[in-house]
Design a protein around this nucleic acid. Sequence first.
DNA 1: CGTTAGCACTCGCCTTCAATGAGTGCTAAC
DNA 2: GTTAGCACTCATTGAAGGCGAGTGCTAACG
Lengths: 348, 348
Amino acid sequence: MSITKRQMYILKAIIDDYILTGVPVGSRTLSKREDIHVSSATIRNDMADLEEGGYLEQPYTSAGRKPSVKAYRLYVDTLMHVSKLSEEDIKFVREYLNYKLNQLESVIDATAKVLSELTNLTSIVLAPQLSRIELKRIQIVRVSEKKVLAIFVFNTGIVKDVLLNIPRDVDVPYLEMLSNILTEKVANLRLPEALMEVRQGMRGEMESHRAFMEKLLDSIVFSIQNKSAKDVVLGGTQNIFNYPEYRDVEKAKNFLSLLETKDTLYDLLTRASDMEFTVKIGTENSIPELKDMSIVTATYNIGGEKIGSFGVIGPTRMDYARIYSILRFVGASINEILVYYLNSNDKT
Amino acid sequence: MSITKRQMYILKAIIDDYILTGVPVGSRTLSKREDIHVSSATIRNDMADLEEGGYLEQPYTSAGRKPSVKAYRLYVDTLMHVSKLSEEDIKFVREYLNYKLNQLESVIDATAKVLSELTNLTSIVLAPQLSRIELKRIQIVRVSEKKVLAIFVFNTGIVKDVLLNIPRDVDVPYLEMLSNILTEKVANLRLPEALMEVRQGMRGEMESHRAFMEKLLDSIVFSIQNKSAKDVVLGGTQNIFNYPEYRDVEKAKNFLSLLETKDTLYDLLTRASDMEFTVKIGTENSIPELKDMSIVTATYNIGGEKIGSFGVIGPTRMDYARIYSILRFVGASINEILVYYLNSNDKT
DNA sequence: CGTTAGCACTCGCCTTCAATGAGTGCTAAC
DNA sequence: GTTAGCACTCATTGAAGGCGAGTGCTAACG
């Protein structure tokens, strides 16, 4: 059973219409469109075929048809027409992202905001994954009697620090020495390897160093691992209310609760961190709660390294074409900004 | 027109019942209570009096009565019976707060969580207000060719840092000198005064220092000011759905949107930062959107200094007595934890 | 005079029911 | 292969009516 060209055209028309309105579309509505010159009866026949092929679904006996997951998949893969972003949108992204350029986190926040504003969906942004970046240097600074600040400088220019309470006072030269030892061991390694290297490489060192370093490492491991929840920034969580099909309090509540368990979102995004783009439609998601939601993600880079990802989540009937171009442009913009902000040519 | 003792008792009964159920309470319901020995007719008479006195309201002609803002105010000020927190609750708070004790922010997050869990309301927690704490030291550390980390150590033991891009490379001794000059100028001053002091005290210094310091200061001012939104942490934002009266999507949406504009919440909390406890009931709030919500706040201290506040926000019919004791206990716990965590006896 | 029983009345809420209309499938004709 | 026509389906809408919780008022009672 093959699909005719006209049927394909009708399918696309149905998807477009359904994405726009969220209401199952009927044959008569379609037949009135200017670009369709066949009668409603003909369309009905085609629709019946498409339904048989698994591309359309009927919510109930005499409602119109709505696209199935299979249809959306086809749409995303081949049918949809990705147009350029409008001048306004481009301007909006540029201004918003540049305006907020003072801290790394602000870029993340601004991205979330921009995405949700442009797409009218809930946006998810994952902060740069430090475990993917090579370390350049570790520097330990004495802050007060029992506190030191461990500063991690990464090759991309990102700087991260952790405040640590230490059991006893240490003097500055000792910390400097420690910094040097650590830096030597970890330079050009990624965090996971660096941790292993230090743990193993410590065997030969003095016992007093060892205890201190262990504590240092533990704290770091803890604060890195513990970041999973913190690393996910959301935008436009209320946007779901714009969709009539989520006017139901129960449904909306479910969705919003899902967003609160950021670990799930974190997993979704990290898992997608290797692909430039991913589109998960409805049941294609492994998570049952997401069975009628879609997630579209993209990644952003520093120096060619994919270090984080971002995307949107919403009803399956989202405007994939538009979202695709938005994500593409926003991703490119983030790259630009990060390169500029982090001054990544800095190779001291 | 004075209120009899029995009327007061009935009023309290009505408030208690309404807080529990959210349904306007009728005379018959009350007359069936074991602690009330008068007939429904008598109660009706009393209710009529209380309504005249402005303590009760009728949603519509033949519904039961519900408490007015005036009634809640009376309840909070004199009527309510604040009991001790249950052992379970105490244990819950202790465990949760202590479990999360690794970073200052975690304490804030944990507080938000604990509050929302215990109260079933949305909690708001304000991070420590750095502008209220005296500085101890400023330390500037070179991180890479064009980046320095400005570390602010406060008297309470809190440490805050800002990453700054600098126009040209500077050497370590210069930064050390700068750190010393700055520290000397700002020690024991609060941030606002410190800024003024540095701005004015710079007049005599070398031009080259001046430019650098100005940049430093600007960045700090920016990052402190810009914190307003970041400094507010929410918990249990979905809890509003537990209240039948907020089953209406429109209402819930309004509430949730309000929570998104964190600046408003920030203002509310900072304004309440001087009072150990505040209770704003319904229209007592200056913000019209909050006209049928109540906000209860408390403060937490470090070394006797009120440095932050936290509280809950929800429908006017909240369990003020319970909330009061929860806030009191949580406040005390935060103090303990902060003192311990920050090692505030550290007076280097 | 405070309290109580009784009764008519009000009004939101729920259920029922029929009308509406968008949409389909099928058949017969073009 | 396409179209017109027609009978049928079914969610949605709105009106009607019953239900019941609750009130206000009046009269009687101790």
